[in-house]
């Protein structure tokens, strides 16, 4: 059991240490937020909003003297265990953009710990969603003159969407900053609001997606999305007109598939497709009925599987095809053929 004197001693000790250490965190905050904003701008992602704060001395001291139910200190060593002295938050418009931003942050810093507090953790209860990274500066960053004298600070970065943040902020204020904790009925309403915002975000994603499909000729605004200049782009656009822009990764992959099949140019592909080229749109509709995500390069691959039938796998692998692979290929082909109008088979 901790005595009042031990609490007073800890208050004094932590306050004295932080009076000296806080200026280093303030300097780190300024350098780190500038670094993150610059990296995001360089990556062409200017829609991310970056916020930060350094913990106030009062807040740190209050946290450092928190007690467990058994009356002992919650933090045996608050200097080492309290890791949110500097907190950075990066907000993206929608969760489809979270992965790219998180990857960028992971490249920028050394990740000590990563936790995804997302819907998968309690799938039938909407609520708090955020990715938390505990990071430190990379050795090459620390070697930079600007960062000299900062020690090796560990700090927290939260990555979430604007709507996830809206819910977390309002919920936090209600749960922790009101005089009495909310009862079950209020908590239930908060959970319902989390569900509502999650649905709103899904709708925003769909709206953005559908808008992209409706205006395929607009220049792409995503650095990873590229239609016109890729060698395979012209072919898939002709075969599947009106399909919108395509992520470059899919074009790269289908280009590699064409290479494995020995199809060096558009004429070779068209010759191999034969009549299937004229049925491309019917095939696209049948595929998208069950795979609405199907991009034009994926559809081209499906078309080639239909046209080449069992030769497809042998030509790609250049080796004998295993029975399970052949069986899966036949099942997929039969399933798709069954969904096509008889005249398109």
């Amino acid at each position: 059991m901790v005595t009042d004197q031990q609490i007073a001693d800890r208050r004094a000790e932590v306050a004295a240490w932080y009076a000296d250490a806080r200026h280093r965190y303030l300097r780190t905050e300024s350098l780190v937020t500038r670094m993150v904003r610059r990296a995001l701008r360089d990556a062409g992602n200017e829609s991310v909003k970056v916020e930060s704060r350094v913990k106030s001395p009062e807040s740190l001291v209050a946290k450092a003297v928190r007690l467990r139910d058994d009356g002992t200190f919650k933090y045996a060593d608050p200097r080492a265990e309290i890791t949110d002295l500097l907190g950075v938050r990066a907000l993206v418009p929608l969760r489809t953009e979270l992965a790219a931003m998180t990857r960028l942050l992971e490249d920028l810093f050394v990740v000590v710990e990563k936790s995804d507090l997302r819907e998968g953790t309690a799938e039938d209860v909407p609520g708090y969603q955020s990715t938390h990274l505990l990071v430190r500066l990379r050795p090459d960053t620390l070697a930079d003159l600007d960062f000299h004298g900062l020690g090796d600070p560990v700090f927290e970065i939260q990555a979430r969407t604007i709507l996830q943040h809206a819910w977390a902020s309002l919920q936090h204020d209600l749960m922790y900053k009101t005089e009495r904790p909310p009862g079950p009925a209020i908590r239930r309403r908060l959970i319902a609001l989390a569900g509502l915002l999650e649905l709103a975000e899904r709708e925003f994603i769909l709206v953005r997606h559908d808008h992209g499909e409706a205006y395929p000729d607009e220049p792409p605004d995503d650095a990873g999305t590229d239609g016109a200049e890729h060698p395979a782009a012209a072919l898939v656009t002709q075969l599947f007109p009106g399909s919108g822009s395509t992520h470059r990764a899919w074009l790269d992959e289908v280009e590699s598939v064409l290479g494995q099949l020995g199809l060096a140019d558009e004429d070779a592909v068209r010759s191999e497709l034969g009549d299937w080229a004229g049925r491309a749109e019917a095939v696209a509709a049948a595929v998208r009925a069950t795979e609405p995500w199907a991009s034009p390069p994926y559809l081209l691959d499906v078309l080639l599987r239909l046209a080449l039938d069992e030769d497809y796998l042998a030509r790609r692998t250049g080796a004998a095809v295993s029975e399970p692979a052949l069986s899966a290929h036949r099942a997929e082909r039969d399933d798709l053929l069954a969904r096509l109008d008889p005249e398109d088979r």
Partner: peptide, 11 residues
């Protein structure tokens, strides 16, 4: 691909 279409992300 279906997960991405549904708005999933991350590792």
């Amino acid at each position: 691909a279906a997960g991405l279409h549904e708005g999933m992300s991350g590792t």
